[in-house]
């Protein structure tokens, strides 16, 4: 049941996708059509961004993948067991328990799985160190800044060493400086733990900087308008943002997004 991420399995992406959406659509009780016939395959080790305008159903798609909402039609196939901690989820808000310390919040997935003792504690301490919050284990969420709370949230999602990490516009509410910092930190964590990441954003710059692949979505009902591979050199760093390749790629993704939204 417990696997590790020692081997980045990018090369087998085509052979065995970790996530496959076939003809998935979603219509809410109110009659609102959020998603229409979405097909998507995500290979192990990929960093995929779902990019689209607000209200295009990106978050709904993510919730379907997480099993939090059933699709109205179509199939969502996961190569992993959702409930065993193989899947991590980071919400737009940090979503921490205010009555628990940082370490208790990060330990939550283990606590639910009834795993106690030294091993979970060590893993939680390691995850807190990995997001740069060593020394804050016993702080309460209200004592931390917005960026630090989001780091706790990421640590909690990473503590079970998930195969698939879903992030729903996690940095949208943060200021620019914190956001850029957390972008870099997320990349370092991805390189280290090598989960497959599906990242929802409406920022072109963020998606190009982070991803190996971008799925551009249309406005409501959401469907995948374009699937772009981002082959900027790895590992990415601040220098990437200044490179002409990055600018060119942003330009291209922007144009694709504009096309998808129907604006000339």
């Amino acid at each position: 049941m417990i696997s590790s991420f020692s081997e980045p399995a990018v090369e087998v992406a085509e052979a065995a996708p970790i996530l496959e959406l076939i003809n998935v659509s979603k219509r809410f009780g109110s009659g609102l059509e959020a998603l229409a016939a979405v097909d998507l395959r995500v290979g192990r080790g990929e960093f995929l961004s779902l990019l689209g305008p607000s209200g295009c159903g990106k978050s709904t798609l993510l919730r379907i993948v997480a099993g939090l909402t059933p699709p109205s039609a179509g199939d969502c196939r996961l190569a992993i067991d959702r409930a065993s901690g193989r899947l991590g989820f980071v919400f737009q808000d940090p979503t921490l328990m205010p009555w628990s310390t940082v370490i208790a919040n990060v330990l939550l997935p283990f606590r639910i799985a009834r795993r106690r003792g030294a091993e979970p504690r060590d893993k939680a301490a390691a995850a807190i160190r990995a997001v740069g919050l060593a020394g804050f284990e016993d702080s309460y969420p209200h004592q931390l800044s917005g960026g630090m709370r989001m780091r706790v949230s990421i640590a909690r999602a990473l503590v079970t060493e998930p195969d698939l990490l879903l992030l729903d516009e996690p940095f949208a509410a943060l200021d620019e400086i914190t956001r850029l910092q957390l972008n870099d930190d997320l990349l370092r964590l991805w390189e280290r733990y090598r989960p497959t990441i599906v990242f929802v954003t409406h920022s072109v710059f963020e998606s190009v900087y982070l991803s190996t692949r971008i799925a551009v979505m249309t406005a409501r009902p959401g469907r995948i308008a374009a699937d772009l591979t981002i082959d900027l050199a790895q590992p990415r760093s601040r220098a990437t943002r200044l490179s002409p390749d990055y600018a060119a790629m942003c330009e291209r993704v922007s144009a694709t997004l504009a096309q998808a939204m129907g604006t000339p």
């Binding site: 919730r63 997480a66 099993g67 939090l68 959702r82 409930a83 065993s84 901690g85 899947l87 989820f89 919400f91 808000d93 979503t95 328990m97 939550l108 997935p109 639910i112 799985a113």
Partner: peptide, 14 residues
């Protein structure tokens, strides 16, 4: 209870 926390608990099979 916070809706997202409820979703998180569900996700981890609580």
């Amino acid at each position: 209870a916070d809706r997202n926390l409820l979703a998180l608990f569900k996700l981890y099979g609580a």
